[in-house]
Write a protein that binds this DNA or RNA. Structure first.
Length: 287
DNA sequence: CTGCATGTTAGGTT
DNA sequence: CAACCTAACATGCA
């Protein structure tokens, strides 16, 4: 489920409802989700006030008055839900945070259990291996920084966009949608993309992500925001999940191929794989 | 039964 | 080192 727009939607929902509230108790139902000594986790979290909820890549960060921060990654199917304490637990509910001054409690639900939650000392954030490895945020990055991400790199552009160490936040849906928007073939070799094409890609990524955030993310199988509502960006997908359907730009049938063991959807006419796709020198020389 | 699914990572190999 | 592949994690669905 969760790529940058979905995580951003969840973070905004959590910030809105949880900022200022106190966590009374952390009830860990499925301990494997918490990647930390349970005592340490509870000690960091319980009786502390939530100061702020923020996002880095696909990670959710919850700053607490105890001087600790909760780090959560939703994996493929994780979600945070605010629910009435009286509602019976779902079989996939793994963590319950009881809150003060709210009629709701916060539940972490994760069908496939790929998600991870831990807490850490806020002042050590720069040393956290999970965050240290991440590339820059796609919504903030400048044109020159973006071009530099791909300098001296080989390989396929789609694989690079999925690599969180290069750029943080894109997953399979938004990589495909951004490449369609930029008219770049997912198998395009990085070293054959000139700076102009990379700038087109940067703008495409930002346009797609912003639209998706506005729509509250994409709900394909099981993505819900903190209020249990689905997003609507799946209705605006141009290629993802549309194999065999007609391209909205040119009416050609959308194709599906495997890249890095993942499905890639693209329009074979709009997204041409070009060998001429010119490096800067060749481009200048030919004009 | 088979294949596939919004993600990450460890361990190989090229 | 970079790139690429496979398997693994756990569960549900077509």
């Amino acid at each position: 489920m969760p790529e940058l727009p979905e995580v951003e939607t969840i973070v905004r929902g959590l910030q809105k409802t949880l900022a200022g509230k106190r966590i009374k108790e952390a009830n860990v139902i499925f301990p494997k989700i918490v990647k930390q000594n349970l005592r340490h986790f509870k000690k960091n979290v319980e009786k502390s006030r939530i100061i702020r909820v923020r996002r880095r890549g696909k990670f959710i960060l919850v700053d607490l008055s105890s001087g600790a921060t909760i780090l959560a990654h939703l994996g493929m199917t994780g979600s945070f839900l605010l629910r009435k304490p009286s509602t019976p637990l779902n079989k996939h509910d793994h963590l319950v945070l009881k809150l003060d001054k709210t009629p709701k409690e916060l539940i972490y639900r994760d069908l496939r259990k790929f998600g991870k939650i831990k807490s850490f000392c806020t002042s050590w954030e720069e040393k956290l291996s999970e965050l240290k490895k991440l590339g820059p945020e796609p919504l903030n990055i400048s044109p020159s920084d973006f071009v530099n991400l791909f300098r001296r790199r080989k390989g396929k552009i789609k694989s690079a966009l999925l690599n969180q160490q290069i750029l943080a936040g894109l997953g399979n849906i938004y990589a495909d949608e951004s490449l369609f928007e930029a008219k770049i073939h997912p198998l395009q070799k990085i070293d054959k993309l000139n700076p102009e094409a990379l700038e087109t890609l940067r703008q495409a990524i930002q346009k797609v992500l912003k639209k998706a955030i506005k729509a509250g993310g994409s709900s394909i199988e099981n993505y819900y925001n903190v209020n249990g509502e689905i997003g609507s960006f799946q209705l605006q997908h141009k290629v993802y999940g549309r194999e065999g359907q007609l391209c909205k730009r040119c009416k050609t049938k959308i194709k599906k191929i495997k890249i890095s063991q993942r499905s890639s959807y693209f329009c074979p006419r709009c997204q041409v794989l070009s060998h001429y796709n010119i490096n800067t020198k060749a481009f200048l020389h030919s004009t």
